[in-house]
């Protein structure tokens, strides 16, 4: 079972721009949320989720690029790998780094990702030319997703708070699955010969908005963060993402027709 085709994917937005968008947007979101929650108020914690969405869109774009070559197994595996590497790097970075935690986490993630990419090509002989770069990108994007969502839940990335309010309470599992879906689902849902970059990425935005809404709901029970604005902005982004996705589906489909309701029992007789 090969997911996707066997070759480089066509892209309207160059990958380098998306990398810049993911790293810069993610880090700005994380640090802006961290400092603005202290300076302005708890409701600024929503910026962390915006940073996480930058990371998720980047992750979805990187998954799209590497999975286009055909991984030999399902696309979901790479999303789980992204979050698996991300959760290791994020926890390590925040635990040892203090205020530089997110940067240390990103560097750690890049090292793990590069290592897995090199192992995949050199030892497992997967033969995907962009494997090293893509694994580095995916691990880093997963880390931004985790830290961004965690900060929007708690309003800070101070490790004792993250530990007691996100990890020990188990919300890390919610982050794991919601963030993982946003990274793996867009390409998994859109792959095929007529796959288009903008349609895949806007699907990522829609999934990221769902993760943002969930983070907002969690934030309502935490003291350091306020959830209402996160949920509202998440709903708005979800609407933009969903209608944008629907528009692109209509654009790319040969025809969109209604099938009508199922026939009733009398009509069938």
């Amino acid at each position: 079972m090969s997911a996707g085709g066997s070759g480089a994917a066509a892209e309207a937005i160059p990958q380098n721009n998306i990398i810049a968008f993911g790293v810069a947007g993610g880090l700005i979101g994380i640090y802006a949320a961290y400092f603005l929650v202290d300076m302005v108020g708890q409701y600024m914690s929503f910026i962390g989720a915006l940073g996480a969405i930058c990371g998720m869109i980047w992750g979805a774009a990187a998954v799209r690029r590497v999975a286009s070559y055909g991984l030999g197994t399902g696309v979901p595996s790479i999303g789980m790998l992204a979050l698996g590497m991300g959760v290791l790097a994020a926890t390590f970075g925040l635990a040892v780094g203090g205020v530089a935690g997110p940067v240390i986490a990103l560097i750690t993630a890049a090292i793990i990702g590069l290592m897995v990419g090199v192992l995949a090509n050199k030892v497992l002989k997967m033969g995907i030319p962009i494997m090293e770069v893509s694994m580095t990108e995916i691990a880093t994007a997963g880390t931004i997703t985790i830290i961004g969502l965690a900060i929007s839940m708690t309003g800070t990335f101070d490790f004792p708070v993250i530990l007691s309010q996100v990890i020990t309470t188990g919300y890390i599992a919610v982050i794991f699955i919601a963030g993982g879906l946003a990274i793996l689902h867009p390409f998994n849902a859109n792959l095929g010969p007529d796959e288009a970059q903008d349609r895949t990425l806007i699907c990522g935005l829609e999934k990221g908005a769902i993760a943002m809404i969930i983070a907002g709901i969690v934030a309502t029970v935490n003291e350091g963060a306020s959830g209402a604005l996160t949920i509202l902005i998440g709903l708005a982004l979800w609407y933009i993402g969903f209608s944008g996705y629907y528009d692109r589906v209509k654009r790319d489909a040969y025809a969109v027709v209604g099938s009508g309701l199922l026939p009733s029992k009398e009509e069938l007789e």
């Binding site: 197994t73 698996g84 997967m126």
Partner: peptide, 24 residues
């Protein structure tokens, strides 16, 4: 909490590497 998170992360990394080796 910490041990579970790290164990899950290590588990996923080690579940995906062989799945690429098996190829489906």
């Amino acid at each position: 909490g910490m041990a579970s998170v790290f164990a899950v992360g290590i588990f996923f990394v080690n579940a995906v590497i062989p799945s690429y080796n098996i190829g489906g």
